[in-house]
């Protein structure tokens, strides 16, 4: 090998991966937001929606949780253009396709935590709020939501951490995020171990950072009876 690892790191890896990191963030942030949005909507519908709507959301959740994410990514990017309705078909670029795939899949998982949070609230809590003269709206605002949010936060946060890791799948459909960039550098330099291990360090850092932020948020919201389970 012509250059040392450190030189290689400074000259090629870090500049390349930094660009990839930016693209990763461009993919992760909107997918996480989309996932939470869909998750809250689906979670609320699963608990409070009318029967047929409940069924429909259940079906959505089991479909997206029951199949591998990579199959879903493949579908939105490669298969969707083949579906034409009235002569029109939708062709998504790689980045929007990954955001859609990640958001829809993540939303299915998020809805589980939201549902769990809502279901964990004992009926008596709402009764007591009503008995004090609160309207249903006030009871939901000051009793149901604060409790459900605390119960759902660890799960939802974890799901976002999973999303950070699974964003690497975008490289499969040619997105030049962290993993995609690393693959390109590896191909050109033939220094696989160094490139991919460095890539691993990038993800470890991202995941550790996100975990730490999540714990900060949980601690900030923590009250006795709703503590974070130490792991």
């Amino acid at each position: 090998m012509s250059t040392t690892y450190l030189e290689f790191l400074r000259a090629e890896l870090v500049p390349g991966l930094m660009e990839g990191l930016w693209t990763s963030i461009v993919v992760i942030v909107p997918s996480a937001a989309l996932g939470v949005l869909i998750g809250v909507l689906a979670g609320v519908l699963r608990v409070y929606g009318p029967r047929p709507v409940q069924r429909l959301t259940e079906a959505y959740v089991s479909l997206f949780r029951g199949t591998p994410l990579v199959v879903q990514v493949f579908f939105w990017y490669f298969a969707l253009p083949y579906i034409s309705l009235g002569g029109h078909s939708i062709v998504l670029d790689a980045i929007p396709a990954s955001i859609l795939a990640f958001g829809l899949c993540s939303g299915a998982y998020q809805s589980e935590y939201i549902r769990g949070g809502l279901n964990s609230i004992k009926r008596g809590q709402i009764r007591a709020a009503l008995a004090l003269g609160m309207t249903t709206r006030q009871a939901v605002q000051s009793v149901v939501l604060p409790q459900a949010f605390r119960r759902a936060l660890p799960g939802c946060g974890n799901e976002i951490i999973y999303l950070i890791k699974y964003s690497s799948l975008a490289s499969i459909i040619t997105v030049g995020e962290l993993t995609g960039t690393a693959t390109t550098i590896a191909k050109n330099s033939w220094r696989n171990i160094e490139v991919f291990c460095t890539l691993g360090v990038y993800y470890l850092t991202l995941v550790t950072l996100a975990t730490w932020l999540l714990h900060l948020a949980e601690d900030a919201m923590s009250v006795p009876g709703f503590e974070r389970h130490k792991s």
Partner: peptide, 26 residues
């Protein structure tokens, strides 16, 4: 009438067997 209900409940205090304190509040 929602308004009358809330007014009634404000003037009628209720104590439950299992307390039903709001668990997230001091």
């Amino acid at each position: 009438s929602r308004r009358e209900l809330c007014a009634l409940r404000q003037q009628v205090g209720m104590i439950f067997q299992d307390f039903n304190l709001f668990d997230h509040l001091s």
